[in-house]
Simulated assay, not measured.
Amino acid sequence: MNTEAIILKTAARTVEIERQALEALQEQSLNQDFARCVEAVHVCKGRVVVTGIGKSAIVGQKIVATLNSTGTPALFMHAADAIHGDLGMILPDDFVLCLSKSGETPEIKVLVPLLKNLGNPIIGMVANLSSYLARHARFVLHTPVSQEADPNNLAPTASTTAQMALGDAMATSLLALRGFTPQDFAQFHPGGALGKQLYLRVSDLYPQNEKPQVAPDAPLHETILEITSKRLGATAVIGPDGLLAGIVTDGDLRRMLEKGSADLNQLAARDIMTAAPKTVLAEDMAVKALEKMRKNSITQLVVADAAGRYLGFIHLHDLIREGLI
């Protein structure tokens, strides 16, 4: 068998074994015990302290990150460090989630009695239901894994996949019980494109730009100078009543020159403007402005209030700069 065939066969076997582990998780573990555990965590006044050893500890750190980002206060405590002083981070109302495939690791067996003496409820996420951890936990989250995905059935692979999935299931169930909204999510994710999609508004961006505008009777050369000097590729046309009458873009100028039929010296802004241009409200989300630009294949939008008063421009470059694209 050549190298490529070995790689693909091994990879396919790995994915298949992990798929089977997730299927078993769905069929056997999402049950009344799981629901009772989530309900108890939902009403608890403390945090979820997640602990484990080895690869389970790494999965535990990811579960903590997911819980925190979805509204459930959580922190990670390494099982080995816990018995050397870190137990002090546990508060009376905290739940402790212990991750262990076997439920028999020495650190966990030392830690569990200490947790019970503190009186904190223990949640055991474990594959072996007859293990020490499973017997002493108040709640058991079962991760049924018949074999690991590596050829030697040794490296934590399918078991850690199951732990990760069950941790996600717990976090999202708690999210649903708390009625966690996109706005709540944005509070915990203020950085990066995801957070900005959820909280950044047009009003955060357009004041940074110039505010090009001309009157409807402004001659062509004045209109061109306004577009060029303000460097937004367009200018608003404002009527005598102070309301937005139209927009002239550099594309409008090109199309006007291509026609070549009019006397350029006689043209005014009203002759080449686009009336009733696409606009966006200052209080709209910036991502809404992006969607409107994409839908209409344009690079800028006029910002106006509900009465049609001109406020400024938001440009595609503003959205690129903020990482929304």
Rank of each mutant, 00 (worst) to 15 (best):
A158L: 02
A289T: 05
N265I: 11
N296A: 14
M293A: 13
T249M: 06
T172R: 01
T157Q: 09
A215L: 08
I298K: 09
V237Q: 08
L244H: 07
A162C: 13
A286M: 15
N209H: 12
P212T: 02
K292P: 04
P182V: 10
P207H: 03
A176K: 08
L174V: 07
A169K: 07
S203F: 04
I227R: 06
L220K: 07
P156H: 15
G167N: 08
P182T: 06
A215V: 03
T235H: 09
S203E: 13
A245M: 12
R178D: 10
F185H: 01
V248K: 00
M170G: 04
A171G: 15
M164E: 02
L166C: 05
K259Y: 05
L244K: 00
L205Y: 07
K211S: 14
S159Q: 04
L253G: 06
K288G: 02
R231Y: 02
P207W: 04
A158K: 08
Q197L: 00
P182G: 05
L257A: 14
G233I: 12
A169C: 09
A171T: 11
A155D: 07
M285I: 02
Q266I: 13
G239Y: 08
L232S: 10
G260D: 08
K230V: 09
R294Y: 00
E258G: 03
G242E: 07
A215E: 03
R201G: 03
A176W: 03
D252L: 01
V214L: 14
D252S: 09
K259N: 13
A169I: 11
E222V: 15
D204F: 06
E291G: 12
G251C: 07
D250Q: 13
Q213A: 15
D252V: 00
M164R: 02
G179S: 13
R255F: 07
D284A: 15
L200V: 05
R294F: 02
A193I: 09
L267W: 11
P182Y: 02
P216Y: 05
Q183E: 12
D284F: 11
P207R: 04
L225F: 01
I238S: 02
K278S: 10
A262F: 14
A155T: 15
A186V: 00
L194S: 10
I238A: 14
A165I: 09
A162R: 15
T235Y: 03
P277G: 05
A269H: 02
I238V: 14
V202I: 10
A282H: 00
